[in-house]
Simulated scan of single mutants.
Amino acid sequence: MNVAIGGVSAHLPPTLVADREIEERIARRSPGFTPRPGAIGKLSGIRTRHRAAAGELASDLAVAAAAKLLSEKGWGVEEVDLIVFASASQDLIEPATAHVVAAKLGASCPVFDVKNACNSFLNGMQVAEALIRGGQYRRILVCTGETGSRVVRWSVADRAQFVDSLAGYTLSDAGAAMLLEASAGPGIFHRDFSADSSRWNVSSIPGHGGANSRDPVADGFMRGEGRTLMESVMRGVRPQLDAALARTGLSRDDFAVFCVHQVGLPHLRVFLEGSGVPEDKLVVTIADHGNVASCSLPLQLSLALESGRCGPGDKVAFIGLAGGISIGVLFAELPS
């Protein structure tokens, strides 16, 4: 028995925010500091980001994507055996946001959350595949909703704090969903995950826990050393990808597309230079859609399918890069 990707869908809130609007908001909220015009675009390569509506939660974005996917498949939610909410964002500390998603969808199946920064969705796929292969479930809905715009620091004291907060200015809101199901045909055929947890503090959102949770300056805001994070990740990507290709007897040319987590165009260029992945195999979403965190990989696959860049019988690669630090490589063949 294999585990096939039965469908994928993404939801992008229609409201778009450009660099200029972000820079103006920072200037209004930051006495004594004004970003240099065009600085965010130059540093990130992002033109626009999506913004959830006021009061719209991570669960709402996940539900929008999941409902769209189920409708496209012609299935009712009762045909799903398990719901996994796999996201960096969440509605509540307790209970699991998966319960909120299930209630909004009208589902009565078991649920739980998977959380691992921007690799949450890829780890959700990993867990779902293992549960299906183990015979516990036959069809699992993995979904995510990201509301990264809620962890952006708008008031900064100086340039140093602006740079430390830059990762937040790349963040975008989105939802995504994927159905994984037992199949006698092709499906996921390789998966490999690694972590360098000694670098957990390179990128973080302090608060709602023990570490730094009483620092009102730091709490709840995205912070990070983008260059250090990318350098740390890239040291492990090439060896892990090369090993995955060697184990499967495949080359980069055997894949229709590579879905790679994207945080900024400069980082993506570094990835291309270091990974050996051909540029024409990428689905570039970062410039127009921003850093959608764990939605990045399913969004790219959804867009690639819609545009005809991949289809039945094609092999697709997922490469997850996340703070923590963690790397994930997963290969799948799309069902015919």
Rank of each mutant, 00 (worst) to 15 (best):
S30C: 04
S44G: 03
F221D: 06
V260F: 00
A117N: 06
I325W: 13
D60Q: 04
R223C: 09
L105A: 05
R247Q: 11
P110N: 02
I40D: 00
S296F: 00
L166E: 02
D192I: 02
G135M: 02
V217D: 01
V63C: 07
S108I: 09
Y169E: 12
C259Q: 06
S71E: 15
V257C: 12
F112W: 02
F112S: 05
M1C: 13
T228C: 14
G276L: 09
G134N: 07
D60M: 09
S251V: 06
G249V: 00
L180S: 11
F318T: 04
G175M: 05
L43C: 07
G311E: 10
G210A: 09
G276F: 14
Y137G: 01
A27D: 05
G148L: 08
V84S: 00
A176Y: 05
V263C: 12
S204D: 14
A58L: 06
C118E: 03
A103G: 06
P298H: 00
G135L: 12
Q161T: 10
M1R: 09
I5R: 02
A86M: 05
F33G: 06
P298V: 06
W200C: 05
N201T: 07
W75H: 14
G290I: 06
E333K: 13
N123M: 08
D219W: 13
T170L: 14
G148Q: 07
V63G: 03
G264H: 01
P278C: 07
A102W: 14
R199W: 12
V152C: 11
I93W: 08
A176G: 10
M234F: 14
A293F: 09
D314V: 00
L141D: 08
I22C: 00
L305K: 04
D19S: 06
V202P: 03
F193N: 01
G55M: 01
A130N: 13
R25C: 03
R227Y: 12
H99Y: 15
L321V: 04
V8K: 09
S326D: 07
E181N: 05
P95E: 15
K104S: 03
G38C: 06
G236W: 15
E24L: 12
E306M: 11
R235P: 01
Q90A: 15
G210W: 07
S204C: 12
S326G: 15
C109H: 08
H267T: 13
P239H: 14
I140A: 02
V270Y: 12
R20P: 02
G220N: 15
A58S: 12
D91Q: 01
E94K: 10
P312I: 01
V284C: 04
K315Q: 11
E181H: 11
R28W: 11
G7H: 06
R269G: 10
M125W: 12
G220T: 08
I319F: 01
G209Q: 07
G41W: 00
G320S: 07
L229Y: 13
V111N: 00
R199H: 15
L321S: 10
V283P: 07
L171D: 04
V156E: 07
H11E: 11
C143I: 10
G76A: 13
I83V: 13
S336Y: 15
N119T: 01
P110D: 04
W75A: 11
D158E: 12
L180M: 11
N123R: 13
L301G: 02
V101H: 00
G324A: 06
D196A: 07
R223D: 02
K68E: 10
P216R: 11
V277C: 09
L92Y: 13
N291K: 05
F112G: 02
S232N: 13
F189Y: 15
A218K: 15
